[in-house]
Amino acid sequence: MEQPGGAPFSSGPAESPAAIIAAMRGRGQTNPERWVDEHGDLLFRYALVRVRRREVAEDLVQETLLSAMRSREKFAGQSSERSWLFGILKHKISDYFRELGRETSFTDLESLADEFSEKFVPEGYWVHVKGPKEWKPEADEVLHRAEFWQTMRNCLDKLPERIANVFMLREMEELESKEICSMLSISESNLWVMLHRARMALRECLEINWFNREK
């Protein structure tokens, strides 16, 4: 099934990288202007989820495409063009937060601090009837459900900005904790507190809006 918004990341039938590049060059397909039409909207949409500001997201897409244009000779054709561009965008997002981390404090120990106190009795155990429910279907099955991704996006949007940022750096850009700490100039223990709150809130939001909705 064709996905709305464009083809998925896979590069189709296996061909040798050299053959793919030769074919692309032959058809004039490395024309960067074409990237704007074919991948611009999706790059922009992801950047917007990450930075939440339209003008910053547009700048990141521009930097990504410029960077891709400069390094297009290095594109080995081992992945699809789109995943190559997304790889560059993820680096640009990391650079953006690294720069921002020098100017502003990323530590946020206030947001969501008491958000989940009603989930536990005073003795520290779960309020059993409000405890986590079994999640069905399994992760590999929801990957193919567009509604799941929409719910995930809505839940990410509800997270406080800095909490969402550290979560996405860790789980979407897949950076190590130490890397995030040095990037954002925050301590490891503060990062763990923020990640814990992000996971708790996201888990709760998905359970209410996706897993319980299914029943």
């Binding site: 918004g5 909207d41 999706l42 339209r54 929801v142 991704w149 789980e171």
Partner: peptide
């Protein structure tokens, strides 16, 4: 963790503004 790392690949399935 398993689903979040696939999120960027599925961004086309999420409603959102275009350029």
């Amino acid at each position: 963790r398993e689903t979040a790392r696939h999120f960027p690949q599925h961004i086309g399935e999420v409603q959102g503004p275009a350029l």
